[in-house]
Structure formats: C-alpha cells, structure tokens
Design a protein around this nucleic acid. Structure first.
Length: 467
DNA sequence: TCCGATCTACGTAAACTTGG
DNA sequence: CCAAGTTTACGTAGATCGGA
C-alpha cells in the first residue's frame, strides 16, 4: 500500500518546471500566446519588453519602484496592442516587408455573409427596420439559416413577431437568395421566382422534398402530373439551387484564426517561416538585475531571485515554443508535399505518433504543438492539424490515407455500369482486390461522406436519366 | 414472400487530448 | 513526459426495409 503511494508520487514529480512552462505555452495560438506574454510581463517585474529605440522605460524605472508599479498598472489598462506600440515595438525591417504584405493579405477582412447582407439592408430598410434586420442577420447560423425563436427575438427587440417575420421574409430575397430562411424548402423557394414557368418546380420544393429524399418518384409524378422526363428536368433545376446561402462566404470561418506561420513556395520548394511581427521581445530587467547585486533584506532578495528564475523560464519557453512549431511544421511540409501541391487526395497517412517518433518528441507534445496553429499560404490558411490523416491497412503496411480511399470509391462508382450499380459489398470486394482492406460498413461511411446515394437509389437515378 | 441491402446498436482498439 | 480520459474509426450481428 505505502509502496504504491510512493510510486505515484515520484512519477508525478518528474515534470520539471521548464518543461511545465513550455507545455503550457505550446498549445496556445498566437492571440492567446500574446495575451499570456502580456500577463506574465504584468505580473513579473523582472520581465521587460525589449525596447531598442527609447530609454524611457529604463529611466523611469530608476525613479523608484512604486512609480514603476504604477506605470505597469496603467499600461495594463490599455489594450495589449497599443501598450506595445508605445513601448517601441519591433518595427518591420526592409527584408520583412514582403512577409508583412502577405500577412496583410490574409488578415484583410473578406466580406462575410453578415456584412454582405447588412450592406443590402442599409439601402433597403428604414432605421427601425434596420434594427430588426441587424438582429436577424447577426443571428444566422453557419448555413445562413435563421433558427432563432421569433417570439424571444420579438421581446428582446421590443417589437411584434409579425414585424420580425416581415423583415425576415424580405431578407430571404436578398443576395444570396434564401438567406435567413427557416427551412430548406423556404430557402430553395426563395431562389425560384413565382411565375408560370416555375409552378411545378415550386410545388416540388414545397411539398415533395421528403418524397425526393426517399426516392418516391412514382408518387411525385402522380401528384405533379408530370412524366419521368419532366421530373428529371425539374430535379436538374432543383440541383442547381443553393441549399446553403452561406456557402459562398465559407472561407471566412477561419479568418479569425491567428496565423503563426507562413508557407512560402520558391524554386527550392516549400519554406516555413515563423511570423515574428507583433511578437514582443522579452528580456530580464537590468534595473532589478542590478538591484540584486546590492545588499538586500532576505525577503526581497528571495522574491527577486524567484521572479528572476521565472522570467528566464518564461523567455526560454518562448524560444522553445517557436523552435518546436517551426520544426514540426517543416517536417509536415516535407512529408505532405503532394498534399500541398495537388490537394487533399494526395494526403498520405500520417499520425502524430509517427511524427513524434521521427522528431524524437512525445506524441502529446506534437498534439499540443499543432493545436490551433495555422499557416498562411498562397492558397489560404492551412491548419497544421490537417496534415494528419489516418492510414488504412494496405498490402505493405499502412499505405492508403482516408482521402485516397474515398477518391477510389468515387472513381469506382463513377465508372460502374448504370444497369447494375455496385452495392457497398461489391465495392468493398473490389477495393480488397486493389489491396485496400476495408469492410462494407466502411465503404458506406465514405460513400456517405462523398454525398453519394446507395446502389438501389442510384439505380433509380440512372433510370430517371436514361429515359 | 424471399432475399439482398441497409440500418441500428453496441463493442474494441488505436489515436488523440489533457492534467499534473 | 506519463498516464488516465476522451474521441474516432471501424467491425459485428441482428432487425428492418423494399423491390422482384
């Protein structure tokens, strides 16, 4: 009993403070990281932001300690950015200009759905209406639909549900059409203007989406009084409508992520750069450093010693974080070159474990390091996590990533004989012959991710098209 | 009604995350 | 870093659906 207790204690004490600080810093994204630095500077007088331009901080610090503390308190009130700007931030140097421009490019706000709609709302609505419209627009979900309760919105805005409904209905006519719809059918209907040509299509959307999903074509044909050919044409038109008004603005989701790295492609291949701009440089306060050399009472000395140790620890941790992120990113980029060049299909299976072994780190370290980290490239932001992919057992060890298998399934289905669509079972068998050992169940999962219907449904669809 | 295909629920192992 | 906890991918088996 006592032995076991002892063992437990020793294992948990292994973690030394350096590692601890570092592990705490590692998973933070840029924004959180800067926040953390600010915190540390505020709470540790031993830490100072490097200031190559003015001596202000130092001279005022020499006045007396209370003055300095007061100053630090004042600074804490300001926003982080302005605080550091005042203190002479790292100014961009000439050969970094390009990088800066690249960063600007990625952080420049692209218009998102809400902005886009608000722009139209401003020209369309009165001031009072605009107030309601704003509420609606900023409460759309990620698909561009409104799933807010009208009643609670009405009471929050101090107006009637009818007024809200009226505004909402008008917004569905904005570009992209169908925004703020409450259901799929409403969204689609908003994209089909009411005119004689569209009557049947509108009826199809209004009452038969469910039938369509269940492939009850006979029923629909009877109800709408159309033949197969015409139904087929209607479905074609339906397909061209957009079920997700927000899709055009999709990329904005990641716009808010703070970018840590920059991916540059040049004649030598890919290069990873850590974005240093905006990062404060920290150093140990020389004022307190000198103070430590003078005679001091015991308490002050031990306090300062402690702060000093913490400060060094923190500065080391900063440096280590940077090195590790760059090292991992570089490794990922060389491993997944094809993925960067040709897209996700070419992603190779790669687990954190493998990377950990290759770089001689612990798996958990990798996990922390890639968390919330993004890399800016000429094709947009890439999450470090997206470099990883499960492997599927192939003939010679792990050879196929989920992406490539998915791609193969799509190919097989695309080239199947229309008279006899392949069942998941047959597809699985075919894949097995190619050396990809996955089960029927797995085929189904991937097939569904590809948005492909099952074999019997496909048979229906082919029939419909064939006639 | 039969039979193949799909669905549903549950189990397992490996991958990943997180606190100390 | 380690170990414990959580998530994910995938498998199995029996139930259920739907077309010929």
């Amino acid at each position: 009993m006592s032995t076991r207790l002892h063992l437990k204690q020793t294992t948990s004490l292994v973690l030394n403070p350096v590692v601890h600080t570092f592990l705490e810093l590692l998973p933070l994204n840029r924004l959180e990281f800067m926040d953390r630095i600010q915190n540390e500077v505020d709470s540790n007088p031993m830490l100072e932001v490097e200031d190559p331009f003015s001596k202000d901080a130092e001279t005022s610090a020499r006045d007396d300690e209370t003055n300095l503390l007061e100053q630090k308190l004042n600074k804490a009130d300001d926003s982080f950015v302005s605080h550091y700007e005042e203190n002479g931030f790292l100014k961009p140097d000439p050969d970094r200009i390009d990088k800066n421009r690249a960063i600007e490019l990625f952080s420049a706000e692209k218009e998102d759905l809400a902005d886009h709609l608000m722009g139209q709302a401003r020209t369309e609505f009165s001031l009072e209406e605009l107030r309601i419209a704003r509420h609606i627009i900023f409460n759309l979900n990620s698909d561009g639909y409104l799933d807010l309760l009208i009643e609670s919105a009405a009471s929050a805005l101090n107006t009637t549900p009818e007024a809200i409904e009226e505004i909402r209905r008008r917004i569905t006519g904005f570009d992209p059409q169908g925004s703020a719809a409450r259901s799929l059918s409403e969204c689609l209907l908003a994209q089909v203007p009411e005119n004689p040509d569209n009557t049947k299509l509108r009826r199809l959307i209004h009452s038969h989406l469910d039938d369509l999903a269940r492939s009850r074509y006979e029923e629909i044909m009877k109800q709408l009084e159309v033949d197969r050919k015409e139904l087929n044409r209607l479905i074609e038109r339906l397909r061209r409508l957009n079920p997700r008004p927000a899709s055009r603005f999709e990329h904005d989701d990641i716009e808010y992520a703070e970018v840590d790295l920059l991916l540059i492609k040049d004649e030598h291949g890919y290069q990873v750069r850590y974005i240093e701009e905006g990062m404060p440089r920290l150093l140990i306060s020389s004022y307190y450093q000198e103070m430590l050399e003078k005679p001091l009472d015991r308490k002050t000395r031990s306090y300062l010693k402690d702060r000093q140790r913490n400060a060094t620890l923190f500065i080391d941790g900063l440096e280590l974080r940077k090195k590790m992120i760059v090292r991992i990113a570089e490794f990922l980029v060389t491993q997944q070159k094809d993925f960067l060049d040709f897209g996700p299909k070419w992603k190779k299976p790669l687990t954190m474990k493998e990377v950990a072994q290759a770089l001689n780190y612990n798996e958990s370290t990798i996990s922390r390091a890639v968390k919330n980290k993004f890399m800016a490239s000429d094709r947009g932001l890439i999450s470090l996590r997206s470099f990883f992919s499960y492997g599927i057992k192939g003939e010679f060890g792990f050879k196929h990533s989920v992406e490539t298998v998915r791609e193969k399934i799509q190919r097989i289905i695309e080239s199947e004989p229309h008279a006899h669509p392949l069942s998941d079972q047959l597809i699985a068998e075919q894949l097995n012959r190619l050396g990809i050992h996955i089960s029927r169940r797995t085929v189904r999962n991937y097939r569904e991710e590809l948005n492909l219907s099952n074999s019997s449904k496909r048979r229906e669809e082919y029939k419909l098209k064939g006639e």
